[in-house]
């Protein structure tokens, strides 16, 4: 029985097992261990003690936890649709430009070549700072300078840096997806007299669904675990106004050494991302 299974699927198993093994050993097993920590009380120095769902009860009664959940969702609402639509638009534009598109492609991709932790440091001081680039220009033109890291503006400012950082790269992914659309379908549509808009709605968009799902999940997971940019720019402040959930788990785990409690918060973060993924893959399902 088992032998027959191995024989029938030997090529598939051969092709998939290195990837599955590595992911299982180095990611999924640590994840399972880490999640099981959420049912314990553990301060690193002592041994973990099983306490059932106590961590989750405490989590749900902490206003700072809900604040972090809300901030995470806020980043998501701001960043996910704007990068998704923006990068699709950029890809369509680059695809339609007949000369010089590789120059734009290379330039748009530049932000991603700066590690986010470093890009964020530069944005913070050099660009958003009181004497930074933007305020420098604003004051020269006679306007008031802007406090980019106030309670109201901290999240939008961080989101803008994220938008800047990911937009070009996501459009490259879309561009690859556009190249993958079978040429015959588009030619047939042209012969039938379809215009550009009709081609986008009836051929390009449906064919791009799998790639859109990828881009959507890519932005979702980077946004929901937004960390290094926050770390470098605001440290979660002012008064926790820009603190996302991953930052909350980091603070409890690595600043206060309450590993079990921190693990409980990361279980919630995981459930949030997975439900967004299931929602997205339902919306973008292939018929």
């Amino acid at each position: 029985m088992i032998m027959r299974f191995f024989k029938e699927y030997k090529y598939e198993l051969l092709m998939i097992s290195p990837a599955v093994l590595i992911i299982f050993i180095f990611k999924l097993i640590p994840v399972i261990v880490s999640f099981s920590m959420s049912l314990t009380k553990w301060r690193i120095i002592d041994t973990p003690e099983f306490i059932g769902l106590d961590n989750f009860v405490q989590l749900f009664t902490d206003p700072n936890f809900w604040n972090a959940v809300w901030n995470t969702l806020f980043y998501g609402i701001l960043i996910i649709p704007s990068v998704l639509l923006g990068s699709l638009a950029v890809a369509l534009i680059l695809n339609a430009i007949s000369k010089g598109s590789s120059f734009y492609k290379a330039a748009y991709y530049l932000p991603m070549t700066l590690p986010l932790s470093i890009a964020a440091v530069i944005w913070r001081g050099g660009f958003f700072g009181t004497f930074g680039f933007v305020n420098n220009i604003l004051t020269k033109l006679g306007f008031n300078s802007i406090q980019f890291f106030s309670v109201e503006l901290a999240k939008p400012s961080i989101s803008l840096v994220y938008f800047w950082w990911t937009l070009g790269f996501c459009s490259l992914i879309y561009l690859a997806g556009l190249r993958g659309i079978p040429q015959t379908r588009l030619e047939a549509a042209s012969i039938d007299g379809a215009n550009t808009m009709q081609k986008i709605i009836y051929i390009i968009w449906p064919s791009l669904k799998p790639i859109t799902l990828f881009v959507a999940l890519y932005i979702t997971q980077t946004t929901f675990r937004i960390f290094s940019a926050v770390y470098a720019m605001t440290g979660g402040g002012p008064s926790r106004s820009s603190e996302p959930l991953l930052y909350y788990t980091y603070n409890w785990g690595w600043q206060n050494f309450r590993m079990g409690y921190s693990a409980a918060a990361s279980v919630i973060l995981f459930l949030m991302v997975i439900s967004v993924y299931l929602f997205q893959s339902y919306i973008l399902r292939e018929d």
């Binding site: 640590p30 880490s34 960390f227």
Partner: peptide, 15 residues
């Protein structure tokens, strides 16, 4: 695989 993707390294550091 998707689960492995969306979980931050930070979460699994100790194990």
């Amino acid at each position: 695989i998707v689960s492995a993707w969306v979980i931050p390294w930070l979460t699994v550091l100790i194990p």
